[in-house]
Amino acid sequence: MNLLKVENVSMIFGGLTAVKEFNLDLNQGEIVALIGPNGAGKTTAFNMITGVYRPTIGRISYKGNDITGQRPDQITKQGIARTFQNIRLFKDLTVLDNVLIANHLHLKSNFLEATFKLPRYRREEKRILEKSLSLLEKVGLVDAQNEKSSSLPYGKQRRLEIARALATNPEILLLDEPAAGMNPKETDDLTEFIRQIRDEFHLSIFMIEHHMQVVMGISDRICVFDHGVTIAEGNPYEIQNNQKVIEAYLGVAEDYA
């Protein structure tokens, strides 16, 4: 089933075309990776899908509904969650608070019910707490729940960011370089972890990643960007043997007469 459809989306900043005519179909349960050299416009594509930028041209639809130009919080509410390239946790708050906050969007009680701790709010709060703790359990951070999130080691911060995104009950998870800065062991764990949460939470995952081992290992399909243009799309095998992709990464062999 098609979940996310990106049609001919372009983002133009002044004279610079950051992303040009980007197309994407993300189906239920798929893992799609977006790769490309630095500055190719990958994060810009992410920011358009999550509502940080409004695309200059084109249409983005989620489950058939047009979500082009909606605010990030509205898009998250409908079921598209994300993580950030440079980790953006709520640094001064505890690990548990970070996950609890991500449940706020589904809270039905108003602020007076919350302040006076009326029955409906108590029920919701209890459910939120249970859900958050079980999420922390799954990502292996339940022991660190009362620690400041900034005190966690890097790999755990990444996991916490994913747990936080999962707390919003997404159907699509967008991961912006989840393996950045990780050592080989952490990278292997992460690959397994992504596959595991995909199955457990019935997610479709769209991710940006530079780490080829991760990308080739778990992606169903790969999209390659260069200078904002999609130069190739296909399964890992096709991408590995695509001449344009090799040129974009390694440069063009020139003939010297």
């Binding site: 990030p72 919080d73 998250t76 950030f84 946790l89 709520f90 706020h104 936080r164």
Partner: peptide, 15 residues
């Protein structure tokens, strides 16, 4: 508090 800590992240968490 989430808004105080990081507006962009807060908004991405649906706030």
């Amino acid at each position: 508090k989430a808004i105080r800590e990081d507006e962009i992240a807060a908004e991405s968490m649906g706030i």
